[in-house]
Write a protein that binds this DNA or RNA. Structure first.
Lengths: 334, 334
DNA sequence: TTGAAAGCGTTACCAG
DNA sequence: CTGGTAACGCTTTCAA
C-alpha cells in the first residue's frame, strides 16, 4: 500500500529544502509556516526551493510536535444510504460541540474494504465509532485497545460499547395498527445479512403471531429503492392477497411505494406500507411514509457521548449499551 | 483545541507503560503489536499495565515510523444533501482503485467550521479536494502548498485546479423545452451564496432572454426541500401566473413538487418543474423529476484523477480546469 | 526473549 | 533575523 508505484523515491524532507535554499531547517520551517522573524528575500528563496522540489511536510512529524486534536473515525457502509448519513450528521454535530473532529470512512458495504479501513484507521484517529459487519474478535485485533463504540449492531456485544436500536414496541405498534385497519395479510420486505433474517424480522414475526397472523410472507430485498420495488413485485406476484407490507427500512419502503404505483395499487387504499428508520426522505414521497421511526441524529450523538465516557476512563464498563427506541409515526402510507 | 478540558494531563507514553510493567519500551511495542519474540507472561503483564494506565499509542509517532498511505481529505458542506454524498461516493470509488484513502469532512455549511476544518486537515491528509466557500487566498493560507482540487466552484480559479460544472447548454435546453410546451411565465427558485445570484441563475436568465421571456421571476431558496416548498409558495403568491419553474437543484425541486401538490397544482399539468443535478432522489418522487443532470459520481472521480496528476508532479499546470457537462433529462415533472 | 541505540521529520527554545 | 540543540513518541535494527 504505497502511494507511488515502482521504485520508492525517498521522501523529500525539510532538510532537502534547507540544503537547496542554503539555509537551515528552522528557517525553512519559519518560511513555510508564515512566522515573522524572517527576511523577505530569504523567505521567497525558501518557498521557491520548496516548490521546485515538490516538498510536502510530513503530517505525522508535524502532528507529533504540535498540539493534538481529538479525532474520531466514523465507519459506515454506504454514503448513498441516507440512514447512515443522518447518523453521521448527528455524530458530527455532537463531536463539534466537544471540539472533536470526525472523519468519515465508507466501506462500500464490502468486507475487504472494511478490513482495509480498519487497518489504516488506527494510524489516523484516536477512537472509532461505526457499523461493522466483521466479527468482534476481528474488530478487536485491528483496533488493539483503541476505544470503540458500535452503532446499531444486532446482538449484544461483550467487548465493545454499543448504541443499540430497540424497535420491538414500535414494530408491535405498527402491526397492531395494520390489524386494526383490517389487514390480515401482511407481508414483510426484509434485508438479510449473510442469509440471516434481521432482528426486525423477528420483531415482526413475534408481533404478527400475537395477532394470529401468518408471518411467513417474507421476501428478501436489497437495501435500495430498486431492491424494495423488486421485492414488492415478487411478493405480490406470489401472494396477491397481501394488502399491507412492513419493510426493513425506509429506503426499501420508498421503492415499494413507487412499485405499488406502477402496479396500479393505490397506497394506502390497496396497499398499506410501513417502513423503519423514520428518515427525512419519507416526508418527500407521495404519500408520505409511515414508519417505525427512530432518532437517527441521536444515534450518532449517543455514540460520541459514549466515546467521551470511555475516553474519560471513568464511568461505564467497557461493554456498555445504550438504547435508542423506535416508535411508530403514522403518515399517509398506512 | 485540546481534547481534555481543564488542566492538561501529560500524555501517557510507551515509557510510562514500560516503567509500570518493569520492562523496556521495545518490549511494550512488541506486546502491543503482537510481534512474536516475547514471553507470554511478559506480554500479559505489559497489556495489563497499558490498560490500567489507559495508554493509547500516538498515531503521529506511529505514522512517522511506519509506511505511509496516501490519504485525501474531502471537504463538503453538508452530509444530508445527497448531491454531496453522491460526489463523495464517486471520489471514494476512484480513490479506492488507486489504493488511496479518503476521509470526509463536513463543514455544516458554516464558515467557521470550514476554517476549523482547513486548519486541522493539514495534519491529517496529504491532499485536499472539495467545496469551499472561503476566498482563494484564505484557502491558500491554510493549505500551504498542499495539493488542492476544487469541485464545482463558480468562477475560474487562478491558483487551484478545479472540476467545474457547465450547465449552460443544459439549462438552455430546459428553458427551450418549457417554451416549446407553451410556458411563457417561467420562474426560478435560486440559491444564493452570500447574496450573490448563482451562475445557474445567469444561465437561466440568458436562456430566458433568448426566448424573449421575463427572467425576473426569481425567488431565493434554502438548499433544502422545505426551502424549495417555501420559495415556491412565495413565488406563486406573488406571481400566480407562473406555470413552470426551474430550480437551483433537485432538492429544492423536490420540495417544490411537494408544495405544488399541497397547493392543489398538479405537476406537470398546472406546473412544470425542472431541477438541476440529476440526483437519484429525483427518481423516487412522484412524478419523477426532470432535471438538468450531471454525472455526480464522475465529478468526484475527476477530482481524484486531477489530484493524481498534481501529485505526480508532471502534467497539468497548477490551475487547470476539467469540466463536467450537464444535460437535460426529461421525466415526469416537465 | 529482552534491551540499548538510532532514527523518522518536524517545530520550540535559546543562543548568536 | 538565523542556526544549533533538543525534544515529540514510536518502531526497527542489532547485540546480548
Amino acid at each position: 500500500m504505497v502511494s507511488t508505484p515502482g521504485a520508492e523515491p525517498r521522501r523529500i524532507t525539510i532538510n532537502d529544502v534547507a540544503r537547496s535554499a542554503g539555509v537551515s531547517r528552522q528557517t525553512v520551517s519559519r518560511a513555510l509556516n508564515d512566522k515573522g522573524e524572517i527576511d523577505g528575500d530569504t523567505k521567497q528563496r525558501v518557498l521557491d526551493a520548496a516548490r521546485a522540489l515538490g516538498y510536502r511536510p510530513s503530517r505525522f512529524a508535524r502532528g507529533l510536535v504540535r498540539q493534538d486534536t481529538m479525532t474520531i473515525g466514523l465507519v459506515i457502509p454506504d454514503l448513498l444510504n441516507p440512514f447512515f448519513t443522518e447518523v453521521a450528521a448527528g455524530a458530527l454535530e455532537a463531536a463539534r460541540s466537544r471540539g472533536w473532529h470526525v472523519v468519515v470512512y465508507a466501506t462500500a458495504d464490502r468486507a475487504d474494504e472494511e478490513r482495509d479501513t480498519l487497518q489504516v484507521i488506527t494510524s489516523q484517529v484516536d477512537a472509532v465509532i461505526g457499523y461493522f459487519s466483521c466479527s468482534e474478535s476481528e474488530l478487536e485485533s485491528y483496533t488493539r485497545g483503541m476505544p470503540v463504540v458500535l452503532i446499531g449492531r444486532e446482538g449484544r456485544s461483550t467487548r465493545f460499547s454499543s448504541i443499540r436500536i430497540d424497535g420491538e414496541q414500535g414494530v408491535r405498534a405498527a402491526v397492531a395498527h395494520l390489524v386494526a385497519e383490517g389487514h390480515n395479510r401482511i407481508g414483510m420486505l426484509d434485508h438479510r445479512t449473510r442469509a440471516e433474517p434481521s432482528i426486525r424480522h423477528d420483531w415482526f414475526t413475534a408481533a404478527a403471531r400475537e395477532h394470529g397472523i401468518d408471518a411467513g410472507l417474507v421476501v428478501d430485498a436489497d437495501q435500495t429503492a430498486d431492491g424494495g420495488g423488486t421485492a414488492l413485485r415478487t411478493l405480490l406476484a406470489a401472494r396477491p392477497e397481501v394488502t399491507a407490507v412492513f419493510t426493513f427500512n425506509d429506503i426499501i419502503a420508498v421503492g415499494a411505494l413507487r412499485e405499488a404505483r406502477r402496479l396500479g395499487r393505490s397506497v394506502p387504499r390497496d396497499l398499506a406500507v410501513i417502513g423503519f428508520d423514520g428518515l427525512q426522505l419519507g416526508a418527500l414521497v407521495e404519500p408520505p411514509l409511515s414508519s417505525v421511526a427512530l432518532d437517527t441524529r441521536k444515534l450518532g450523538a449517543l455514540a460520541i457521548e459514549q466515546l467521551a465516557r470511555l475516553l474519560s476512563g471513568l464511568g461505564t464498563s467497557e461493554a456498555d449499551d445504550l438504547i435508542v427506541h423506535a416508535e411508530l409515526h403514522l403518515s399517509g402510507s398506512a
